[in-house]
């Protein structure tokens, strides 16, 4: 195939899958959260059980006035939503759905995903800094502090898996995966899941946008399409983190009939993880800022280090 055509085709497919999966996760959050609270959630948009609610929301956001505060740093303020969303798209592109279904096959894709995901933080920090609003600034600083402390256990958990597989490529990690990993890498998996929820700034780690304290944090001054971008990046983040968790810890496309149903297994497992992340939001209260730092440095980092040591010992012993 013509390389230019293939590139365009891949871009379009990745972009479409990214948007569709993010919207599906968003809609799932609406409905699952509603039913967990004894409500029905959206029921009208689109006719059947409000399936088109997020599309309707997007149309509404399009019509809204795009306000930039007078004192804001206009340039930074305007590009911040893009900086928050784009890294997830980049990360999504290199996560394999099956051994052949991958947007871009990068050799060190585990590293690449972590690096790209960390850039997303920058968007939130830019938004908080440029809004010329004390709540936004507080939220931005909280986000930065949170992401700094949770990036470390996350990287440690991923490095444990990479060490076990002997590869920093996500495809290589899944190929080396076997069901015993579920038990052996369990502490790492828990650490990764908690750190992922914290990276996504979702309850119970949503101090950066804690509504009762700091209005909407870095998003306070945003309206219309730019605000919608931030919301989309939250759902996109869930998609990316769920896929990453599936690939790293749940064996990706491994499962019965994995030759034919491989991609389906990956999507099914990551759907399960997404619902789990949504479930945590519904069930749990928000942590305080100091509790959050305490959890990261006193629980997650030691746990991740212990997991790393365990993996190292196992790898050394089994290679002899």
């Amino acid at each position: 195939m013509n390389p230019g055509l293939e590139l365009t085709l891949r871009l379009v497919i990745v972009l479409a899958a990214f948007v569709v999966m993010s919207l599906v996760v968003g809609q799932t959050e609406h409905k699952v959260m509603a039913h967990m609270q004894g409500r029905l959630g959206p029921m009208y948009a689109g006719g059947y059980h409000g399936w088109a609610q997020l599309v309707a929301d997007a149309v509404k956001f399009l019509q809204k006035e795009d306000i930039t505060p007078a004192a804001a740093d206009r340039r930074v303020f305007h590009i911040a939503p893009g900086v928050a969303l784009a890294p997830y798209l980049v990360a999504f592109a290199v996560i394999p759905i099956s051994s052949t279904w991958v947007g871009a096959d990068v050799p060190a894709s585990a590293l690449f995903v972590l690096a790209a995901g960390a850039v997303g933080i920058l968007g939130v920090l830019m938004a908080g800094w440029s809004s010329a609003n004390k709540y936004a600034l507080l939220g931005g600083i909280r986000a930065a502090a949170q992401l700094l402390s949770y990036e470390l256990p996350m990287v440690l958990a991923v490095s444990s898996v990479a060490l076990a597989a002997g590869s920093v490529s996500l495809t290589g990690i899944v190929d080396a995966w076997s069901p015993i990993w579920l038990l052996w890498q369990l502490p790492g998996a828990i650490v990764f899941l908690i750190a992922a929820v914290a990276e996504l700034k979702r309850t119970p780690f949503d101090m950066p946008v804690a509504e009762p304290e700091i209005v909407m944090g870095p998003l306070t001054e945003y309206t219309g399409l730019r605000f919608a971008f931030f919301m989309l990046s939250e759902y996109a983040g869930i998609v990316v983190m769920s896929l990453l968790f599936t690939v790293l810890f749940l064996g990706g496309w491994h499962g019965p009939f994995s030759d034919a149903l491989g991609p389906l297994w990956t999507l099914l497992k990551s759907a399960f993880v997404s619902v789990l992340i949504i479930w945590l939001r519904v069930a749990w209260p928000r942590l305080r800022e100091d509790q959050l730092q305490r959890l990261a440095w006193l629980v997650l980092v030691p746990l991740a280090l212990a997991q790393l040591a365990l993996t190292a010992v196992w790898v050394v012993l089994s290679s002899q």
């Binding site: 699952v32 967990m36 609270q37 004894g38 409500r39 029905l40 479930w279 069930a283 749990w284």
Partner: peptide, 21 residues
């Protein structure tokens, strides 16, 4: 407490909602 919270929300998910349409 965390597990209880998850159990409660899961149980509510299984029951019909209270919404009066």
């Amino acid at each position: 407490g965390l597990l209880k919270g998850m159990a409660t929300t899961a149980r509510t998910l299984g029951r019909p909602s209270h919404t009066a349409e």
